[in-house]
Design a protein around this nucleic acid. Structure first.
Length: 363
RNA sequence: ACACACUUGAAACC
């Protein structure tokens, strides 16, 4: 039963709701009884795939179950999370209200909002750009005014710190880090990575590097994401050598670069006008087992474009098509930019025509 | 005891 639950959870996260359904059916055939872990994983699988009516159906079904399988706070959080992802805020808030009231078939004791509930909602607010309000909610949570049973945790702070950073407000992000420390919450890898990213985006690269070194000193071991964030920051700020140096350091520290790390490095080489080196990385990726895909081709096309190698952009595009890789909007953007810079209007028009034929979303 | 379901951080178009 746990095996099934785990697998259904995994498939849901991977965006494979159909496989999840199949597994669920098989589970029933095998007379393995589903519990609230199973149902919650299913809600997640459907919700992530924007199959909201299916998700709601499972949720309603749970309400008619025996005690063990009735919705609990995790179930509700999951539902709120997928609704927020789909921007169905009215419904998300409605579930939140029902959790607090214990109405609509939810048991008040089992469904009390938790820190995760608030974190999910705060994250949604931030993604809508309502950071000020999110900060206010955080303050009310911290003072116990909003919910006497819930206090903010590291994730709560991380969400808002990242949002401030993305909005270009590194000062506010710093202030929040101090705020979390005052509450005896330890900044973790996500906190530092968000900060590094914030500094990288404002061009305060020495602060980004300093933050990275400080986290190491404080005993938080940088993971792939932290390394990649700093590598990308170096790249963005035209510090290719530092990026490469850090790439070497991470491997010495036994932190395996992943696909995103390589993509960041390719981009850094493109920005620095080193298409040959970018190519090398592109090939190195393939030999370390990363299959070429839209992203790798896209990064390569972009790098060539930045280096003025417009013909190579087109060649890469054709290679990508030959390999049967479906282009996305980013691919076309890279192509269009290349055509524009090389004043290759025929190809640009031809491409737009192809795009139109394939009936994709217009920007 | 823990275990299987929920929330946050990195690249690329903008």
């Amino acid at each position: 039963e746990r095996f099934y639950n785990m697998l259904i959870g995994f498939l849901g996260r991977e965006g494979q709701p159909d496989m999840a359904t199949l597994l669920f059916e098989e589970m029933l055939l095998e007379q393995v009884s589903p519990n609230n872990y199973t149902f919650t994983a299913l809600i997640n699988a459907y919700g992530r795939a924007r199959m909201f009516s299916e998700a709601m159906e499972v949720f309603e079904h749970m309400k008619s179950c025996e005690a063990e399988s009735r919705p609990n706070a995790v179930t509700c959080n999951t539902l709120i999370g997928v609704l927020c992802r789909g921007k169905k805020y009215v419904q998300a808030v409605e579930i939140f209200r029902q959790m607090k009231d214990g109405s609509h078939g939810l048991q008040k004791e089992k469904c009390k909002p938790s820190t995760v509930t608030y974190n999910t909602l705060i994250d949604a607010m931030c993604r809508e750009g309502r950071i000020e309000e999110a900060v206010d909610v955080l303050a009310d949570l911290a003072s116990g005014q909003l919910d006497s049973a819930v206090v903010p945790d590291t994730v709560t702070y991380n969400i808002i710190i990242d949002a401030c950073g993305k909005a270009g407000n590194a000062r506010k992000a710093e202030q929040l880090v101090r705020g979390m420390e005052e509450r005896a919450l330890r900044p973790d890898n996500a906190t530092y990575t968000a900060l590094i990213d914030a500094y990288g985006k404002t061009g305060e690269i020495e602060k980004a590097e300093f933050t990275f070194r400080r986290m190491q000193k404080l005993g938080v071991r940088p993971d792939v994401l932290s390394y990649t964030a700093l590598i990308a920051s170096f790249g963005r700020n035209a510090l290719l050598e530092k990026a490469e140096e850090l790439f070497g350091e991470m491997q010495k520290q036994r932190v395996q670069p992943n696909e995103v790390t390589y993509l960041a490095l390719i981009d850094a080489h493109g920005k620095a006008g080193q298409p040959r080196q970018a190519e090398k990385l592109f090939k190195a990726m393939a030999s370390s087992g990363y299959k070429q895909n839209v992203y790798t081709y896209g990064a390569m096309m972009d790098a060539y474009g930045k280096c003025g190698e417009y013909q190579l952009v087109v060649n890469t595009f054709q290679e990508m098509r030959r390999e049967g890789c479906r282009p996305n909007l980013i691919t076309y953007a890279a192509l269009l930019t290349a055509c524009g810079r090389s004043e290759n209007w025929e190809d640009a028009l031809l491409m737009l025509y192809c795009l139109q034929q394939s009936g994709s979303e217009w920007e």
